[in-house]
Design a protein around this nucleic acid. Sequence first.
DNA 1: TATTGTTATACTCTATAACTATA
DNA 2: TATAGTTATAGAGTATAACAATA
Lengths: 161, 161
Amino acid sequence: MADQLDRILAQWHAEKPGLDVSPMAVVGRLSRAASAVDARLAATFAGHGLDSSTFDVLATLLRSGPPYSLAPAALARDAMISTSAVAQRLNKLEARGLVARKANPDDGRGTLVSLTPAGRNLIEAALPDHLATEHALTGALTKKEQAQLAALLQKLTDAAG
Amino acid sequence: MADQLDRILAQWHAEKPGLDVSPMAVVGRLSRAASAVDARLAATFAGHGLDSSTFDVLATLLRSGPPYSLAPAALARDAMISTSAVAQRLNKLEARGLVARKANPDDGRGTLVSLTPAGRNLIEAALPDHLATEHALTGALTKKEQAQLAALLQKLTDAAG
DNA sequence: TATTGTTATACTCTATAACTATA
DNA sequence: TATAGTTATAGAGTATAACAATA
């Protein structure tokens, strides 16, 4: 049962028999797995009126614990995007009443972003659904396989710097 | 040596001790590995004046073998994007002289996209560099680990598909 | 001077819909 | 009528740079 990547590798073997294209099997499947998983997660998010970046912001605030409040810079670090991208995400979330911005009492330059009650309710409702989706995906693997996969992905990430 | 994902999991354990967040270890690392690998590949592409979507189009044409010519619909299927997105990528590649469009002699409605000599030269030069980058990444894993990783990713993709 | 955060702006990429031409 | 392909258009998302306020 050759999949698309097997066909791609076969094409390369035919066209470039001298090249060792074996890494493509790993890198190509990594890319496809990430896409497929993202699509499944996005479907769950959409069921709650969220997308993955919105979910990430709300989930980051939730898992930070009471008072569910962080500086924009911390959100930017966590999501690995610019602070301006965070500001623009926050504008939308604030317009929807899911987060609120307050002045940071300890630093007049700073802002603190907090979950509103509505934002808290939304992320508390979405989180179990999201976890159920993740369990459904990883459930195809044994616990041992999951641990192996996580370790191998970690090695690859380290190699990529 | 806790990484960022270990810290995230620890936060969830503290905030939601009743939830089994173990799938996040796998899904989170998948996402981070894909991002890290993409960034490394993009750096190699940039060294040849390419980005990953441009490389994909040229590489798809090359591995299709002589006469290095495909219909836009085939390129769209391969890249999993709309035909209009393909048309717009091709406009740019054609403006750079890397591909050429000709009428399909067998179907008056159709177009055939071919590598120009310049396009052929560029992808032939970029491919070994790209493979070297992929070898550098996967070289952190033994051959056996690479095979394991590919198989586990395949299982996960199937579960998501 | 450096830092925090926001906004203005421009850029890239994409999909939907409208359109042309051919089967 | 259906299919292949292109273009026009609009939307989403981002980063760079300019700006305001505070440290």
